[in-house]
Design a protein around this nucleic acid. Structure first.
Length: 292
DNA sequence: CAGTGGCCCTGTCTGC
DNA sequence: TGCAGACAGGGCCACT
């Protein structure tokens, strides 16, 4: 499940392996993989063929590559969804079972493959912000900056979080408030902050909001340092290698295992059609006071 | 308008 | 052995 650290690992791989290369040929093997392209797969292919790829960029879980040459003013945008992979493969490697899109390059070297089992991810060629050297696609203007972005505004985030009339985990997963946080790192940040996932955001103090942000930033930085979190073969870097952070998780996926702080078994709760892992002792739901 | 909940998708695992 | 159902869950969009 690629979240910010995993997507950043992939971004670095793209920056290393495809920047400066010219696209010779594009194959779309599953139409759903380019469903963000309004005019369809043929348009996607036409807009990409012959362009030169720039340096990959990222905001939250979105990746994009600015295009130069015939593609100037546009970017190739990608989202990995739950199971998407961008692999830089030797052309002799047999096609992956869930290969959706292939880019061949004019230099005849390793090709770029988008592989996606569950097809929640996808690629598209989109118009970029006018004059933006990073080529930020217009379609992600609503996505907030992420906590590893030097331009992320900590004070504004804390204020916006506390102004919300929702619960804290919902807010962490709201990509218009803070991007890059998914189910895994939300649970980890909440565990580190001793906050229950259903805690109303309006009851957080300013220091609690600041600590939650610091913990989200810290856990994602630590995960990035070891290549991200891989539970299975669904998340790998561009060379097909797994990350090692899963062994360092404190809450996510640890149902019945002892809390590393207090020893109480970690509990899993159904939440929003997914799961929340938390320590029932360290992370208590604040009791609603009557009368106010 | 802000907040909420349903849906998309496929492979793996569990229980009957 | 086979089949149904649960589960993994990010983002979009209709609805309140």
């Amino acid at each position: 499940m690629p979240e910010l650290p995993e997507v950043e690992v992939v971004r670095r791989g793209l920056a290393n392996w495809v920047a400066g290369r010219t696209v010779a040929d594009v194959q779309v093997l599953h139409p759903r993989a380019v469903r963000r392209q309004p005019a369809g797969a043929a348009d996607f292919t036409a807009r990409l063929t012959g362009t030169t790829l720039g340096t990959a960029q990222r905001r939250g879980k979105y990746l994009w590559v600015p295009l130069a040459g015939s593609g100037a003013g546009f970017s190739l945008i990608g989202h990995l969804g739950m199971s998407g992979q961008l692999l830089v493969q030797d052309p002799s490697v047999p096609d992956e079972t869930h290969l959706r899109v292939r880019l061949r390059f004019a230099d005849g070297g390793r090709e770029l493959r988008f592989v996606d089992q569950r097809t929640f991810g996808g690629l598209a060629v989109e118009e970029a912000e006018d004059g933006d050297p990073e080529g930020t696609p217009l379609s992600i203007a609503h996505i907030a900056r992420d906590p590893l972005d030097p331009r992320f505004d900590d004070v504004a985030f804390a204020a916006a979080l506390r102004a919300k009339r929702t619960t804290v985990k919902r807010a962490l997963l709201d990509q218009t408030l803070i991007s890059g946080v998914g189910n895994i790192y939300a649970d980890e940040a909440l565990w580190r902050s001793r906050l229950h996932y259903d805690r109303p955001t309006a009851t957080l103090t300013r220091p609690q909001a600041a600590e939650l942000l610091a913990n989200a930033r810290e856990v994602m930085t630590a995960a990035l340092a070891v290549g991200g979190t891989s539970f299975d073969s669904l998340y790998v870097n561009v060379n097909g290698e797994s990350g090692y952070f899963s062994r360092d998780l404190d809450a996510y996926g640890r149902e019945h295992e002892p809390c590393r702080r207090c020893g109480t078994p970690i509990r899993r709760a159904a939440w929003m059609n997914r799961s929340s892992y938390f320590c029932p002792r360290c992370q208590r739901v604040p009791r609603v006071r009557s009368g106010g």
